[in-house]
Amino acid sequence: MVASDGLAAARVVVGVSGSLGSLTALSRAAEEARRRQAQLWPVLAWEPPGGDVAARRNPAPSVLVDEWQRLARERLLTALDDVFGDAGPGVGLHALVARGTPGLALVEIADRESDLLVVGAGRRSAWHRACSRSASRYCLAHAGCPVLAVPPSPLESELAAMHRRNAWRLRLDTRELNRRLRTG
């Protein structure tokens, strides 16, 4: 899009997966877009099961590819609804579903120096950093525009801790949880 003065409209591109971290990043990206009077470009990148390499070796019927694309679009719409509801983000919105690895897709879409790329910082444990690919790390290393890595919400870590306690069938102290929720 081109602004009325002939310059490209400012964009805030944000990676969205539907995870709690990406929803936090989406909310922060909307704040940044409003502050900068920019368009909000939420992007959900998807790959076929097994990745594109496996898909090239055994091409899926187009019906399956269409279904995966539809599911990705639904997940993006659900994330937008979860964060903004009926009110919307308060800025111009250009939602995209892109086929490809998340980091590469985000870097390719946020291709202007004037763009701001917003990503969730992901989990901070050494285990997750060592064992998982990170779209945020890829974006920080390869983007040609500023990248804002949004840390996880404190609520997300509390939720993960409760999930671990539940999985190990450990007693949950709800008084401590209630105290934390009340104090913010």
Rank of each mutant, 00 (worst) to 15 (best):
L93R: 05
L93A: 06
L93W: 03
A95E: 13
A95H: 04
A95F: 07
L96W: 00
L96P: 00
L96K: 00
L96C: 01
V97R: 00
V97C: 00
V97K: 00
A98S: 03
A98Y: 01
A98K: 01
A98H: 02
R99P: 15
R99C: 12
G100I: 06
G100E: 05
G100D: 09
G100H: 07
P102K: 11
P102L: 14
G103Y: 07
G103H: 14
G103T: 10
G103D: 10
L104P: 11
A105K: 07
A105P: 11
A105C: 06
L106H: 10
L106E: 12
V107D: 02
V107H: 05
E108V: 05
I109S: 08
I109M: 09
I109V: 09
A110G: 07
D111N: 12
D111W: 13
D111M: 12
D111C: 09
R112T: 13
R112C: 06
R112G: 10
E113V: 11
E113W: 14
S114H: 00
S114M: 04
D115G: 06
D115R: 12
D115S: 13
D115Y: 06
L116N: 10
L116P: 00
L116H: 04
L116D: 03
L116Q: 01
L117M: 14
L117T: 09
V118S: 03
V118L: 10
V118T: 06
V119D: 02
V119T: 00
V119E: 07
V119I: 05
G120C: 10
G120T: 14
A121F: 07
A121D: 11
A121N: 13
G122R: 09
G122D: 05
G122M: 01
R123E: 13
R123S: 06
R123T: 09
S125Y: 12
S125P: 13
S125K: 04
S125E: 11
S125T: 02
A126D: 09
A126T: 14
W127S: 10
W127R: 14
W127E: 12
W127L: 13
W127T: 04
H128G: 04
H128E: 08
H128A: 04
R129N: 11
R129K: 15
R129F: 10
A130V: 07
A130F: 12
A130I: 15
A130G: 15
C131H: 05
C131W: 02
S132K: 11
S132E: 15
S132N: 15
R133E: 14
R133D: 12
